[in-house]
Every structure is written in structure tokens, then in C-alpha cells.
Simulated assay, not measured.
Amino acid sequence: MANITVVGSYVVDLMSRTPHIPSAGETVLGGPFRMGPGGKGGNQAVAAARLGSNVTMLTKVGKDIFGDEAIKNFENEGIETTHISRHPEEVTGTALIAVDDSSENMIVVAPGACGKITKSDVEKAKADFEKADVVLLQLETSMEAVEATVEQAQQLGKTIILNPAPYQEVTAELLSKVTYITPNETEATLLTGVEVNDEASAREAAAILQEKGVQTVIITLGKKGCFIHDGTDEGRFVQAFQVEAVDTTGAGDAFNGAFATFIADGFPLDEAVIRANAVGALSVTKIGTAPAMPYKEDLEQFLSAHK
């Protein structure tokens, strides 16, 4: 069974449906409204846990009712909560989400407490890093936490997966320590200066990231699929599974949590990506982020139906 340590964000998702994404200054009547657990780190942890991984979550929440719910939700998912701390002043993070009739979304994240994760918080979790097969992180926390996580994981010889979302500037030195990087088109564009919108541009961007030292680049292109570049050839494209999307929020998190699981379980790279694509596809068929993450049984049924 895979052991995964996730260092990242937890926020409360406050989501409403809307006929269309509002433009500047516009008020739109929407509904229904839903509230639930979220945050890129939290979502990815839940995705991995539901696929059978042993997951340890490192994050920070407030001393408020949302923080209480966060710990309860993680415990209900079977996720280790020893390294979820409570900030004495900051509130638990929130994400304001609008999802339109075509299932596209717009998100504003207020990180709150999870933006205050420190190097010391990461160092206190060294024992769990030592047990991990994979360390998974994003950029929805402080850069101090990101850098400390990568440094500690590298020193311990761990596989490191960086999902560079939401985009923040990262140094070439940090990238050189990363085993896998998983940007989407927008993040890949910002990281490399290449406008990524198809296989050719994804190949160009991936080559730049490899020049910066990343071992393997996986650029996710939504319903188009993924582009993989691991240095063994010029890269290759993996098609996505076609499903009827209801809510695309959290699809990237589903992919990353699943990819971490399958890499830790020893699947070959391409097979891990195919299976992670399937998990991402399943997640968009339900409303929400963490609550929409599929279970292992759901995945096996889906793969059997799509042979």
C-alpha cells in the first residue's frame, strides 16, 4: 500500500452555480449553494486516500468551526491528521467558486491559516517524510513551506511531485530537485513563456522545464489529455477519457492525488497517467471537489467499461 505525505492547503469551498461567470461589476443570480471541504492539498489527499493510499496531511487551519470540520473530514477519510495544526489568529482558508452552465469555473482562494505553514512545521514531520513513498505538494501555501518540503524530501531521497498551482514563481534550483511536475496549460505557459495550447507547444514547454532540471514533465490539457516528457524521447500525448462533465472544479487535484498513488504503487509512468486521467474524468461527473473524488472500486469499474 502506498504511503503518501501531502503538504498543502485546506480551504472551505463555498460554491454556487451560475448561468454564466460574472463580468467585472456584474451581479448574477445563481444557485444552488454548496459548502464543503476543499483546497488543493486537501483534495489531493482525499483523492489518494480513496484510492487506497496511506495518506498523511500536513496543513494549517484556524481555531474556528471550519477548522473543526477540516480535521473531522480528514479523519473520516482515514487520513493521518497529526500534522494538521491550528493557527492562533488566522482563520481557516476559503475558496469562493462559481460554476457556470457549461461546467467552467472561476475560483478566488483566501488561504488564511494554510498560507502560514512554516519551515518548522515541515521539519516536525520528518518521521512521516521518512516513511513516505511519495511527497506531494502544490503552491497554494507559503513558498517557505514549499521550499522546506522539497529540501527535506530530497535529502531523504523521496519521489517529489510538484503541482505548480496556483502559479507562483519558483526558482530553477527548486525545480531541479523535483521528480515530477504537473502544470496545466496556464501554469506551463507562465513557467516557461511558451503559450501552451496543443501538443507541439506542450512539447516545447516541457523541454524548457527539463532544461531547468525537472526529471519528468506532465502537462495536463483538460479534456484533451496529457503530454508526458521524461527525457527518453521527444515526449508523447495521452488521450483523456470523454465523459459528461457536471463540474470541472478539482479535476486537476483528482489527477494529482491519483498520479501520486499509482507512481507510489509502482505503475509504469504511462499507465499511471492513464489511470490518473480516468480518476480526473470520474471527478468531473459529480459536483464538488473533495466530495467528488472517486473510490478505487469506481475507478476499476470505469476502466473495465472503457477498455
Rank of each mutant, 00 (worst) to 15 (best):
M1D: 08
M1Q: 10
I4P: 02
V6W: 02
S9Q: 09
Y10C: 09
L14C: 14
S16V: 13
S16F: 06
R17M: 12
R17H: 13
T18Q: 08
P19D: 05
P19A: 10
I21C: 00
V28H: 04
G30Q: 08
P32R: 11
F33V: 14
R34Y: 13
P37Q: 12
A45Q: 03
V46A: 03
A47R: 08
L51M: 15
N54D: 11
K60D: 05
K63E: 11
D64K: 06
G67N: 04
D68M: 04
I71K: 13
N73W: 10
N73E: 13
F74L: 15
F74I: 08
N76W: 00
E77Y: 06
I79R: 04
S85Y: 08
S85G: 05
E90Y: 12
T94G: 05
I97H: 12
V99G: 13
E104Q: 14
V108H: 02
V109N: 03
A110E: 04
A110C: 14
P111G: 10
G112K: 05
S120M: 12
D121G: 07
V122M: 06
K124S: 15
K126F: 02
A127I: 12
A127C: 05
D128Q: 12
K131F: 02
A132I: 02
D133N: 13
V135W: 00
V135T: 02
L136K: 00
L136A: 00
L136G: 00
Q138L: 08
A148K: 09
P164S: 05
A165C: 11
A165E: 10
K177H: 01
K177V: 01
V178Y: 01
T182D: 09
P183F: 07
A188Q: 05
V194F: 00
V196T: 09
V196H: 02
N197M: 06
N197D: 10
E199S: 11
A200Y: 02
A202G: 03
A207P: 02
Q210D: 00
G213L: 01
G213E: 00
G213F: 01
V214M: 00
V217K: 02
I218F: 04
G222I: 08
K224L: 15
F237S: 14
F241Y: 15
E244N: 15
A245D: 05
A245C: 06
T249W: 05
G250Y: 02
A251Y: 09
G252K: 10
A254E: 10
N256D: 12
G257N: 08
G257A: 05
F259Y: 06
T261E: 07
F262V: 09
A264P: 04
A264V: 07
F267Q: 12
L269E: 10
D270N: 15
D270I: 14
E271C: 05
A272S: 14
A272M: 09
V273K: 02
I274E: 09
A276G: 00
N277F: 03
N277V: 03
N277Q: 07
N277G: 01
A278P: 04
V279F: 00
A281P: 04
L282A: 08
L282C: 05
S283A: 15
V284R: 06
V284G: 09
I287L: 12
T289M: 03
P294Y: 03
L299W: 10
Q301F: 09
Q301K: 15
L303Y: 13
L303C: 14
